[in-house]
């Protein structure tokens, strides 16, 4: 294409646009009417959300067209916005009561939901604390009431719990595995609980908060006659006392 042709076409277009714009002015009336309709629908918007939102969108687009000098498009969209806004208002007024009831329920649910979330968050943090400070069971060797290094470490954690719960008393429940004399085991369970109490006392816990109860071999946590079951059953449990 030749340069002269391009230049001419550009000229013609620009002239045309200027002419077109010059021929129309902004559809101010239509835009004002639409704005009024949207505003008057706004108070009822929550009961005709979609129509109201669509009306508002059309109004915004109309204004944009108007600014851009696209007055035809602006006027058409402004009129559509006005119609939709009026419909929205009518729809909202038609089912106002039902709509409000639903909304009330909705708000109630939302509130509960927030409370649940809140509680969950609180619980979680509580659990976290308990995780940090829980009463741990200590284990023993065969026919022994001696505290191992591991048992002492665990007891240290129980001491933290007892310090954090100053009003609490605990029952130190002594247990044995199933082997041997049930009467001797009753005494052995006591001996284990006593060893724990002595150690806690050395760490500054008042012994009046530490009660001893031996179950001997009578309350196994693990059943069966295996080494693993025996190991689990030779223990002192901390049971908070009410």
């Amino acid at each position: 294409m030749e340069r002269a042709t391009i230049r001419w076409m550009t000229f013609a277009c620009v002239t045309g646009l200027i002419l077109l714009a010059g021929c129309n002015k902004a559809p101010q009336q239509a835009l004002d009417d639409a704005s009024d309709a949207v505003q008057s629908a706004e108070s009822k918007s929550e009961c005709a959300k979609e129509k109201f939102a669509a009306a508002q969108r059309l109004l915004d687009e109309a204004k944009a067209h108007s600014k851009a000098g696209e007055y035809d498009k602006a006027e058409r969209k402004a009129k559509a916005a006005e119609r939709l806004a009026k419909e929205a208002r009518e729809t909202a007024e038609a089912n106002w009561e039902d709509c409000q009831k639903e909304l009330a329920e909705q708000r109630a649910e939302d509130r509960n939901g927030r409370q649940d979330d809140e509680r969950d968050r609180r619980d979680q943090s509580d659990r976290q604390e308990q995780e940090d400070l829980r009463l741990r069971t200590v284990h023993f060797g065969y026919d022994s009431a001696e505290l191992s290094e591991e048992a002492r470490d665990r007891l240290q954690e129980n001491v933290e719990w007892l310090r954090a719960n100053r009003d609490a008393s605990v029952v130190l429940e002594g247990h044995t595995d199933e082997r041997g004399s049930s009467q001797y085991n009753l005494a052995l369970g006591e001996q284990r609980a006593r060893a724990v109490r002595q150690y806690l006392s050395q760490l500054g816990i008042d012994t009046s908060r530490l009660n001893i109860l031996s179950y001997g071999e009578e309350k196994p946590v693990a059943h069966g006659s295996t080494k693993s079951a025996y190991r689990q059953n030779r223990r002192v449990e901390f049971v908070p006392k009410n």
Binding site: L186, A187, E190, A193, R194, R197, N211, I212, S214
Partner: peptide, 10 residues
Amino acid sequence: VTLSMGGQNA
């Protein structure tokens, strides 16, 4: 009998 008097020694 065997008594342990408060969990003291049997």
